[in-house]
């Protein structure tokens, strides 16, 4: 039997070249501006920031800071992913849980992340701050998206599953999963950007020792604009790489479910 998931779109070379050209254009503008200003303190040229990035890469402290922050931010992300999915499933089954979680998600969404960071420093200290903040920012996004996915499952298909006694596991795999996965993917894509931004912000405010945030804070403290840009680039690269990898794995899972559907149903 054949797989059923929609075919991947062909990468559009023309659009890729346009996007690359746009990036190159802005880097050139940046370089020109830096040369015009002529001060690395105010505007550090991209070439200088890149040079600084390579210098940092050669130090042991660089990799340990990246590992320190990644471990905590991603632990926060995955914990929120699991808790968000479980809470959403329970909310569908028990309306009391949905009612209880509604104000919590609203408050988390509306409250400035800085308030949570300061509260969390008071409660837990700064070592695992980014883990908590990352969890807090990701949880409502995942919870609400997964809940939306579950609630959008076709009631007529669910009725069909009941009449034919398809069973809970198969109903979950064949009716709920295809509905939830696009919602989950969209939620994860948003949440992954959010967890890095809020996690590093928490490290900067809490000055978490040994973290990327601490390096950013020191760069600000000593007016090392090159370091600041190099660390910013590191955060962008690591978060983008992780997002691409995670979304790729999620896509593979979607395809796997499509394959299982056809092969073993």
């Amino acid at each position: 039997m054949t797989a059923s998931i929609s075919k991947d779109k062909k990468p559009d070379l023309k659009s890729f070249i346009y996007r690359l050209a746009a990036v190159a254009f802005w880097i050139l503008v940046w370089e020109a501006l830096a040369r015009y200003v002529g001060s690395d303190l105010i505007i550090c040229a991209p070439s200088a920031a890149l040079k600084r990035l390579f210098e940092l890469c050669a130090t042991g402290g660089f990799w340990s800071a990246v590992a320190f922050s990644s471990l905590r931010i991603l632990t926060g992300f995955f914990s929120a992913l699991i808790v968000g999915c479980v809470s959403a499933s329970l909310s569908v089954k028990f309306s009391l849980i949905k009612i209880l979680l509604q104000p919590i998600t609203s408050v988390i969404k509306a409250t400035p992340v800085a308030s949570f960071i300061i509260l969390a420093i008071i409660w837990f200290g700064s070592r695992n701050l980014s883990m908590f903040i990352s969890f807090l920012m990701v949880f409502p996004v995942i919870y609400l998206n997964v809940l939306g996915g579950i609630e959008s499952a076709d009631p007529k298909l669910l009725e069909m599953a009941r009449v034919f006694r398809i069973g809970r596991l198969r109903t979950l795999i064949y009716i709920y999963f295809p509905e939830v996965l696009p919602f989950l993917a969209s939620g994860c894509s948003v949440a992954l950007g959010l967890c890095w931004k809020s996690g590093v912000a928490a490290e900067v405010i809490g000055i978490s020792s040994g973290s990327v945030g601490e390096r950013l804070y020191k760069a600000k403290l000593y007016f090392e604009t090159g370091d600041l840009l190099a660390w910013t680039a590191v955060i962008i690269i690591v978060s983008t790489l992780f997002e691409k990898l995670f979304m790729l794995l999620l896509g593979l899972l979607s395809r796997k479910i499509g394959g299982v559907k056809n092969d073993r149903a």
């Binding site: 039997m1 054949t2 059923s4 998931i5 298909l157 034919f164 006694r165 398809i166 198969r170 064949y174 009716i175 295809p178 499509g258 559907k261 056809n262 092969d263 149903a265």
Partner: peptide
């Protein structure tokens, strides 16, 4: 179930 082939739809029940 839209994503399932004819045979798989039948095998499901």
């Amino acid at each position: 179930i839209e994503g399932l082939c004819a045979e798989a739809n039948c095998r499901l029940v």
